[in-house]
Each structure stands twice: as structure tokens, then as C-alpha cells.
Simulated assay, not measured.
Amino acid sequence: MFSEFKEFILKGNVLDLAVAVIIGAAFATITTSLTEDVIMPIVSAILGTPDFSSMFILLGSPPSDYAGAMDDYAALKEAGVPMLGWGQFLTVVINFLILAFIIFLIVRYANKVMKQMEEEKAAEESGPTEIDLLTEIRDNLKK
């Protein structure tokens, strides 16, 4: 059983998947920072609010013993107040769209490179082209 597990783990697909997960997690951190530290402050400045992720709509009243501010999203959420956190949701959606677009660009580029490599391989396997043969014949006739 151990040898089967070792064979499974050492297969290229599993190692490739592990590398992809690690790189994906790191990339997600970069994308989150791009969203939270660059894009959302610009959106917040346009909309006139300093912290876009804390925009919400109260759906109920806070508990009677709640003493925090009524505009503190984190405190209200911790107190269990029902609310619709549309600002945080919008931030996550924008983060997802940025990540999806960047992954699209990477996959698009990878597909382009793979197609080009396949075309080069096919050209090598098919032998010399007509132009190469004609050039060779011309060179031989010159000699």
C-alpha cells in the first residue's frame, strides 16, 4: 500500500497540481491586495466613502446590550445583527473578476505558445518544405 501511495504522489500530475495550488494561493493574495489596496480605494473615492467594504444595509435592530457604533460593520456583525453586507460582497466579486481575467490571460498565452510549439513540431516532422527542396535543387544546379 505504501508503494502504491508513493507512486501516486510521485506522478507528474499530482506534483503539478500541488505546485498549481501553492502558486494559486500566492496569486490570490496578490489579487486580493490589488483589489483592496488599489482598486477599491479608487472606487471608494469616486463614491465618496473611505471604506467601501463596510457598506451595508441593516435588516434588523441590534441587541439591547449593544453599545458600539451603528456604522461599524465588523462590530455589528460580531453582535449578530442581521445585515446585508453588499460592499464586502462587491469587493469579493471584483476580486474574483480580476483573478479570473488574469487566469484567462495566462491560459490564453499558454494555449498560444502550445499551438506554436505544435506547429513547429509538425513542420519538423513533415520534412523539408517545397521551398527548401527548390532551394537545394538550385544550389546543386549552380555547383
Rank of each mutant, 00 (worst) to 15 (best):
F8V: 01
F8Q: 04
F8C: 08
I9S: 07
L10D: 14
L10N: 10
K11Y: 12
G12F: 04
G12V: 01
V14C: 11
V14L: 15
L15E: 01
L15Q: 02
D16I: 10
A18T: 08
A18H: 09
V21P: 08
V21G: 06
I23C: 01
I23E: 03
I23T: 02
G24M: 11
A25C: 01
A25L: 02
A26G: 03
A28Q: 10
I30A: 12
I30F: 13
I30C: 12
I30G: 13
T31V: 11
T32R: 07
S33A: 07
L34V: 01
L34Q: 00
T35Q: 03
D37H: 11
D37I: 03
I39C: 11
I39Y: 12
M40G: 00
M40E: 02
P41R: 06
I42V: 14
I42P: 04
V43Y: 05
L47P: 14
P50C: 00
F52C: 05
S53A: 07
S53K: 12
S54K: 09
S54R: 07
S54I: 00
L58F: 14
L59P: 06
S61A: 11
P62W: 04
D65N: 06
Y66G: 00
A67S: 07
A67T: 12
A67K: 10
G68Q: 09
A69I: 00
A69Q: 10
M70R: 05
D71K: 05
D72W: 10
D72Q: 08
D72E: 07
Y73G: 00
Y73I: 03
Y73V: 04
A74K: 09
A74E: 10
A75Y: 02
A75N: 00
K77S: 13
E78N: 06
A79I: 07
V81N: 09
P82G: 03
P82V: 01
P82R: 00
P82S: 09
M83Q: 08
L84K: 06
G85L: 02
G85A: 15
G85H: 10
F89M: 07
L90A: 13
L90W: 11
T91E: 03
V92H: 12
V93L: 13
V93Y: 06
N95D: 05
N95P: 03
L97P: 09
I98N: 02
I98F: 00
A100I: 10
A100Y: 08
F101I: 06
I103Y: 14
I103C: 13
I103R: 11
F104R: 05
F104H: 05
L105H: 07
I106M: 14
V107P: 02
V107R: 10
V107N: 10
R108K: 15
A110R: 14
N111K: 03
V113K: 14
V113N: 10
M114R: 13
Q116H: 15
M117G: 13
M117R: 07
E119C: 12
E119G: 14
K121C: 02
A122L: 15
S126A: 15
S126M: 07
S126Q: 01
G127C: 05
G127N: 01
P128E: 15
T129Y: 08
E130F: 04
E130T: 04
I131M: 13
I131F: 14
L134C: 01
T135S: 15
E136Y: 08
